[in-house]
């Protein structure tokens, strides 16, 4: 098999971080991989799952494994933007000085993000997109890498504020955290009820993360694969000429261009993880659901028929695959 130093290094580093995380997190391989993809692709991740599935632990463990600054904000309805970004306080020297909020970290855990008011949620918008915050008219740049890992649970909707589309669109991936299997649960119980507790060690530095990000961007993608990814994105737009039947029926709005960017970048990481030096359609397909499921807005008919975003995406992929034929018929 052909080898490349950069690719090998990337894969090794990725596997090392994953291995450290797996020390604390039982199972959930896909979730871990997707979170790490977001780390490598310079994207934020929204974890959605029932309480107690290890979302917070996952993020914390990741911060430990990567050896970067970790910040955590527990979102509540009375949380104010300044509690997130930081504020100017009058110091002893009678001078206003900026006291950084928890957002000034390399990895920020925004726990139960949907419990905060939209005003507070919006405090994250600039930080997530621009990698900076503006307080008191002064712009404060966040240190790279900056990764927001938000969690929310799909139940207990009373007293919550669903994230607005603009906010959702800033998340690179939306990862659904499933219940562990029986075997995984047994392992979790064994690990957490014993006398010893796993302590992940740091296996990657901040520079390593930055290097991983630069490597990802170098992965080439063929025009045909790019067309395929864009076809999927466009097919999710219900008003488009090439909209898939499912999107036309169940979607109000399709993904933004950020969705296409996420798709391609995630595809590149998948390619490297698969030991290839090019993005394949297979990589794109793997990335479709986490990259686009929070970027399409379903209509009432979808709700009425119990249609999920993931099913709409599956049908859209199938429709695009059907039209993507072998150019040589023999």
């Amino acid at each position: 098999m052909t080898e490349n130093t950069e690719a090998t290094w990337f894969r090794d580093k990725f596997d090392a971080i994953r291995a450290e995380i797996q020390k604390a997190i039982v199972g959930q391989h896909e979730i871990v991989e997707n979170v790490l993809i977001c780390l490598a692709a310079n994207g934020h991740v929204l974890l959605e799952g029932m309480p107690g599935l290890g979302k917070t632990l996952l993020v914390r463990t990741l911060a430990s494994a990567v050896s970067v600054d970790f910040g955590r904000i527990q979102f509540t309805p009375d949380l104010m933007p300044a509690d997130v970004t930081g504020t100017n306080v009058l110091s002893e020297g009678r001078v206003f000085e900026f006291r950084k909020g928890p957002i000034f970290a390399n990895i920020l855990l925004a726990d139960e993000i949907n419990r905060a008011t939209p005003k507070t949620q919006s405090a994250l918008l600039e930080a997530m997109q621009e990698r900076c915050v503006t307080v008191g008219g002064k712009r404060h740049v966040l240190e790279e890498p900056f990764l927001v890992m938000a969690t929310q649970n799909p139940i207990e909707q009373e007293g919550t504020y669903p994230l607005p589309e603009a906010q959702l669109d800033r998340f690179f991936f939306k990862v659904l955290v499933p219940y562990p299997t029986k075997e995984e649960l047994a392992e979790v119980v064994m690990r957490t009820t014993g006398s010893t507790e796993a302590a992940p060690s740091a296996v990657a530095s901040r520079e390593d993360v930055m290097k991983m990000r630069s490597i990802v961007r170098e992965v080439p993608i063929a025009q045909a694969v790019l067309d395929y990814a864009l076809s999927i994105v466009v097919a999710c737009h219900p008003e488009g000429e090439t909209a898939s039947p499912a999107a036309r029926r169940f979607c109000n709005f399709g993904p933004s261009p950020r969705g296409a960017q996420s798709l391609i970048t995630a595809g590149k990481v998948h390619a490297l993880l698969a030991g290839r030096f090019n993005v394949a359609k297979e990589d794109i397909r793997k990335a479709v659901k986490p990259a686009l499921r929070h970027r399409i807005l379903l209509n009432f008919e979808a709700d009425a028929e119990g249609m999920s975003a993931d099913r709409v995406l599956e049908e859209t992929i199938a429709a695009v695959d059907t039209s993507d034929r072998d150019p040589i018929k023999v």
């Binding site: 080439p220 993608i221 063929a222 025009q223 694969v225 090019n278 993005v279 359609k281 297979e282």
Partner: peptide
């Protein structure tokens, strides 16, 4: 046909 995962397409383009 050979499940080369777009290797050839990308390589010839590049």
């Amino acid at each position: 046909r050979a499940a080369l995962k777009d290797r050839l397409t990308t390589a010839t383009e590049r």
